[in-house]
Amino acid sequence: MNSSIIKVAQSSFTTTGIIAKCSPVLASQLHTSAPLCRVVSGKYRITKKRDKPLTYEMANPPHYIAHRKSWNSWNTSTLQGGLRRSETALEDEFIRRFMTGTWHGLVCSEVIIKRQFNHIRVAAIIRRAVSPTKMYFLLGYTEELLANWLQCPVTLELQTVDSFKDVVFKYI
């Protein structure tokens, strides 16, 4: 959809020289999704009984990013001249799903993925529902398999909490 709009934009401008130069910049700055997203996405609906638990990350809507909370993925792919945009997004999604599936029912927070050079650091908050020995097994397993899959060193940076209630910020 992006490209079609760019084409429309290009045809409307007669001076093609300028627009051809600008197009990669345009491509990453044009938002083409419905304006409803601004109102709804990344926000949680209040329940009748006001008993839905939210973590701090969930409690702050997206416009608080960089003010009250920070990003869930840290990388440079979206900067100008950034490499591997789609791959990074896809891999991040893969890592998130892999984490929540491997640490089944244990992950209490968002999975934060930080990329530095060729190194991926994955951070999460884990419930102390299994013994430390099992946690170490999962740690080694996750690190090794993700490293083999993504072909770069992967480090897990976990913190543990006693129960899910420890990460609840408020109920709505």
Partner: peptide, 8 residues
């Protein structure tokens, strides 16, 4: 941890 690595 090493057993996990081996499994992977």
């Amino acid at each position: 941890a090493e057993a996990g690595r081996k499994a992977a």
